[in-house]
Design a protein around this nucleic acid. Sequence first.
RNA 1: GCCGCGUUGGUCAAUCGGUUAAGACGCCUCCCUUUCACGGAGGAAUGAGGGGUUCGACUCCCCUACGCGGUACCA
Length: 565
Amino acid sequence: MSKKVRLRFAPSPTGGLHLGGVRTVLYNYLFARQHDGVFILRIEDTDQGRYVEGAEQYILDSLAWCGLEPDEGPHKEGAYGPYRQSERKALGIYEKYARQLVGQGHAYYAFDTPEELEEMRTKHKTPDNPSPQYNHHLRRKMKNSLTLLPGETEALLAAGTPYVIRINIAPDEEVGFTDLIRGEVSFSTSGLDDKVLLKADGMPTYHLAVVVDDHLMEISHAFRGEEWLPSAPVHVLLWKYLFGLDRMPQWAHLPLILKPDGNGKLSKRDGDRLGFPVFAMNWTDPRTGDPATGFRETGFLPPAFLNLLAMLGWNDGTNQELFTIDELIEKFSLDRVHKGGAKFDFEKAKWFNHEWIKRQPVSSYSDRVRALFEAAGISIPAAGPDSSPHPGTTVANPGGDPGVPASDPAAGPDSSPHPGVSASDSAATGVSPSNHFEQVLELVKERCTLLPDFVQQASFFFVPPGDNMDLSPVKPKWNDAKQLFFVELIRQFGFLTPWLAPALEDEFKEMAAAAAIKPGDLLLPLRIMLVGGKFGPGVFDIATLLGKEETLRRIRHALGLLQTS
RNA sequence: GCCGCGUUGGUCAAUCGGUUAAGACGCCUCCCUUUCACGGAGGAAUGAGGGGUUCGACUCCCCUACGCGGUACCA
């Protein structure tokens, strides 16, 4: 019997979407796509105390940014809704099953107050048993429908006494199942406690909700973090009592993502401490005002983010590390997912992004980079490749939001290798009004790891170094011969057409030879005149994109500075 | 404490009884480049410990150690 493949990601809306959460989504998504299945988003908002306003929308937005959009969910109702557990509770869905369990003798009413529970725990606590459980042994001492006299339970219920429904776990049974990643796992019911299934406020706990909803939504495969493994036997039991083991989804408990130093689960705190993002996008807790930076705002590309996440606990057995989402869909397999947790390494994460910046067409992220420039107060002129671009005038940009709406298509990268600067190419296609900007990005992208690096690497194209250029490497060796050379260079370059790198270089070298100066002694000064410092791509490529007018203007300006000082 | 799951270089990791134990990140050296980067070549660095099983264990079994997770009317 092979049922339709249906998977779900079931977060609770309590905060930002963690790296590990995104990876869980990714594995769900890959598996669903691979099997022509359906990927569902279910919001597990059963804990009213921890509910955070805006968190659900944030999760939706994060998934959209990643390109991992669910086929069904609160935003996109399917045939299995509603998709929020609070709404499902209102329909009486969970209560019905809880009562059924009571009727079957697999669950019971418990009237213990929180204080009584606390008292029980402190009273029975011993060094050997630091956390006494409400189990087959202790429940006999508590106030529940198993210990109450006949009729008392009904009376309490009728009186409206607050109660919970607990699962009735019988001791000394083995409960096992086959985990898709770990193989056979089994537990003794003696170690289990009588978990609350239905809370006093009528909400189900995770334990009840997850099996009821997985059943009702016909989930075929359930992936979740390893922290759920200890409670899996409770879920298996519930499946057995309610719907039958043959209908239970196949479980896969994913390894944890660990902090880079020391041990333990990676937390937002670690990101703050070590200086890297842990959430998909920026997130500010509305209650505490506590901010957290996201991968998006740090300057990651969605395909890079997905790629690095995929490799945290999975590989295809070859040396390949760079995968498009389509390749991942094709090659992903649960049996190659690690059992052990993986420490998160931000350096490696950056490497992935660098690779993706290099191989994605710049047009896929130029909008985001443009917004970053704007946020830095640099407006990007829309200029054709052949007109000489005007240096941007610095414009104040109050409240510029670097977190731009990123619409990177999750599509794979352009497989054809992009040539470097090819003015003719983009001029010919002429589809974009911002060819010049994209040519600039193309020229500097190999030295950019994160999107904001583009601002640092390319702002000189739009803001002339002016009086801020660092002439210190040049000044000590400056002389009349060099001064003369550049004066002449301005003159000769003025005649040059077309204005292209190879021609510029030829002319430059010819003149250097004529002046009997080593080109090397002239190249660095020229670079600093144009760029303002010792960095950047090839100097003639820079001049090409700067355009003749601007190039000559910058040389002239620098000459003035050198003379007067 | 108890239960469960893990453990190959600093990190991600390949190996599914026989290899000089891959590859990548990071680090170091050199080359390319009259800047930075990219690229290329090379280097240092690994099977937690102890018992078995076997002709032969990183690989299978057991024990120990260590780590993590769980032990809530949180998920």
